[in-house]
Design a protein around this nucleic acid. Structure first.
Lengths: 184, 184
DNA sequence: AATTTTGTTCATTTCAAAATGAATTGATCT
DNA sequence: AGATCAATTCATTTTGAAATGAACAAAATT
């Protein structure tokens, strides 16, 4: 009877997804795959491309900073995609560059200050969308068809409702920030 | 000098988008288009198909309940899409059916209890995703590669961080509910 | 029973976002 | 200078969710 030699009780192999196996140890690959999947799923909720999430994941799953070639080796993604996704990740501050004197390649390490990422999401997606919605509502109000006053009254009532929800949700954002201890 | 005969100072025509003009009055069409656009934009944020949002919008923008044919006339969407989108809207409780004795066609009216929709979003998308994330994190923890203890320590540290954010965000959901006055 | 009216189903198509990879740039090394 | 390495750009391709519309059902009307 052959048993796995691992110290762990053997887990089922993880869904590999975008993660390459190559000649790397199976348990490491499984770990990386599980981390990458976690971030890919989370990104789906936030509307972020899979490749971007996967690259953050693979960088997160390495103690040593990774260079471009490392990522290319570990993930089943083209150079073009990796280059573009790294740019996005740098722009949003999800990864940091760590220069290494001995080599010319840039090294990347995850920025573990997740509050910055969350703050970015709150400000960029939520707050701006809600503000845009508020403007649209104002515009709609000026378009309520006159003529039938009873009908106009109904529409104004409905629009007031939307306006209240817009305001309430906007008021929620700072509360969320406070609760998550995210500095203004 | 020809002036618009409207009582309103003439607004620029609204982006028509999916809304059909037909032989309907321009100001009504503009109003409907503005409302539809509002919901389409909001839906984009929530990951809802445009057609679904547009149909909710066109129903919202009518005082009288609309039947299938009304929607088909007002929006540039196929019967198939309308049928499927109406099903979705009924399932999530965004519209109500209003039977009319005089006619066999079903009539639809918006459910203005927006808190129900928001609650649904919180429960279905946010909470279940966060719970799934929590499970994934537990799984990842069991996959931390043993061997190098220093490395394992770093990973455990990082995973603790993710776990904390997961928990905090989960704790935020009930607070959001309370703030928005959404009954548990 | 035949017809019209009212919608549904689902195999195919469309389309926009994401991914690709060849060509190119811009370094660094010999 | 020439060669090699590291990465970026961007015109093209892929892909998957969304939309289409013809075929089909089910009920009401004639």
């Amino acid at each position: 009877m052959v048993r796995p030699t691992s110290s762990q009780p053997s887990l089922p192999p993880a869904e590999r997804g975008l993660v390459n196996v190559g000649n790397r140890p199976a348990d490491l690959v499984d770990f990386e795959a599980a981390v990458v999947n976690f971030f890919v799923d989370a990104a789906e909720l936030l509307g972020v491309p899979k490749s971007v999430a996967a690259i953050y994941g693979i960088v997160f799953a390495s103690v040593e900073p990774l260079c471009f070639a490392d990522i290319e080796q570990r993930l089943n993604l083209s150079r073009g995609t990796i280059s573009q996704s790294l740019r996005v990740l740098r722009e949003i501050g999800a990864i940091k560059e760590v220069s290494r004197a001995t080599d010319r390649a840039e090294l990347f390490t995850p920025d573990l200050e997740l509050r910055k990422l969350i703050e970015r999401f709150l400000a960029t997606r939520l707050e701006t969308q809600l503000a845009a919605g508020g403007k649209q509502l104002a515009d709609i109000s000026r378009r309520v068809p006159a003529g039938d006053p009873a009908r106009a009254a109904v529409f104004n009532q409905r629009l007031k409702l939307l306006g209240r929800w817009n305001k309430r949700t906007r008021a929620l954002v700072p509360i969320a920030r406070a609760f998550l201890h995210i500095p203004r």
